[in-house]
């Protein structure tokens, strides 16, 4: 079920020089993309030329011009302004949900790794949760509770906490059997000390990579939900919602639909590039 990153010796002869440079390039490129979107999410709405709901153009799907750098959308609103607000929604909701999922998952994972019966209960619980297809779970929960932002964050976090749980549990179990943990136990250290001071510091790297991966999954699911009309509700929008509402512009290649599409892709590809570079390209895909 679980794929924990492993490092290994490369097979056969190859040119590590090329490989290394490629890794650095993808780290730089991916990192720059992520930082770009973080900045956009942070300051974007403040510098937006128009209110997101304001109709500024009589023409719909108009091409880019000096007044409307990304053209107008299906109602004649400014695409740039809507993009800036949508990026903030997508990035902040995804970040919050990932943070929540990681916190719950890692906490339960560490707890499970340190006790037998807690492990049995949590494992079964999270296994059950992950058996419901993610989009279906979102469909039903949001369909019944309404698409408010807390509900969105909660749903996304619920869907992706089992993955964080499984990863941190597996990692922690591998470390918990090492001799230095045994030495600490033999010294009489308390469980919280052992978990926080001996085990956790060794998990930071792999968990960071897992966090990035989960951020990608959350972003994709959020966009999928928005595409089905279950995401951020009008007049606000996230990137997925922008694609949905402007889908009619696809036929003539309107920026209103293409820009948010590429925005989602660059965000997730950028994150994937960073993770791949950091974990040496040996990461296998997890469950989406």
């Amino acid at each position: 079920m679980n794929t924990v990153p492993k490092s290994g010796v490369p097979y056969g002869a190859q040119a590590p020089k090329v490989r290394r440079r490629r890794m650095n390039v993808s780290l730089l490129l991916g990192g720059a993309t992520i930082i770009f979107w973080l900045i956009v999410a942070l300051v974007g709405p403040m510098v937006a030329p128009h209110a997101p709901g304001q109709v500024v153009d009589l023409d719909v799907f108009s091409p880019a011009s000096s007044t409307l750098p990304l053209g107008s959308d299906y109602l004649g609103r400014d695409v740039l302004s809507r993009m800036l607000i949508a990026s903030r929604f997508t990035v902040s909701i995804a970040l919050l949900a990932t943070l929540l999922a990681a916190t719950v998952g890692v906490f339960c994972g560490l707890l499970a790794a340190s006790s037998g019966w807690v492990d049995a209960i949590f494992s079964k619980l999270f296994d059950t949760l992950s058996a419901v297809p993610s989009l279906m779970f979102g469909l039903v929960v949001i369909g019944s509770l309404g698409a408010s932002i807390p509900v969105l964050v909660g749903t996304l976090a619920t869907v992706y906490s089992p993955g964080a749980f499984r990863t941190s549990r597996a990692l922690a179990r591998n470390i918990a059997v090492l001799d230095f943990v045994t030495v600490a136990r033999a010294r009489g250290e308390t469980l919280p000390y052992i978990v926080l001071r001996e085990i956790l510091p060794n998990l930071v790297g792999p968990l960071a990579a897992d966090f990035g991966l989960r951020f990608v999954f959350v972003t994709l699911l959020l966009s999928g939900l928005s595409f089905l009309g279950l995401g951020v509700q009008p007049p606000n929008a996230d990137l997925g919602a922008l694609v949905r509402e402007n889908i009619a512009g696809l036929g003539f290649g309107a920026a209103a639909v293409l820009v948010p599409t590429f925005a989602i892709a660059s965000l997730t590809i950028g994150m994937n590039m960073v993770i791949d570079a950091v974990s040496g390209g040996r990461r296998a895909g997890g469950r989406r």
């Binding site: 090492l178 001799d179 230095f180 045994t182 030495v183 033999a186 010294r187 009489g188 001071r197 001996e198 510091p201 060794n202 930071v204």
Partner: peptide, 20 residues
Amino acid sequence: QLRRVQLVFQNADTALNPAV
């Protein structure tokens, strides 16, 4: 009692926490 008995392991690689 814990103080008076101390354990030293075979493999120093795993007996020391790499992050400490």
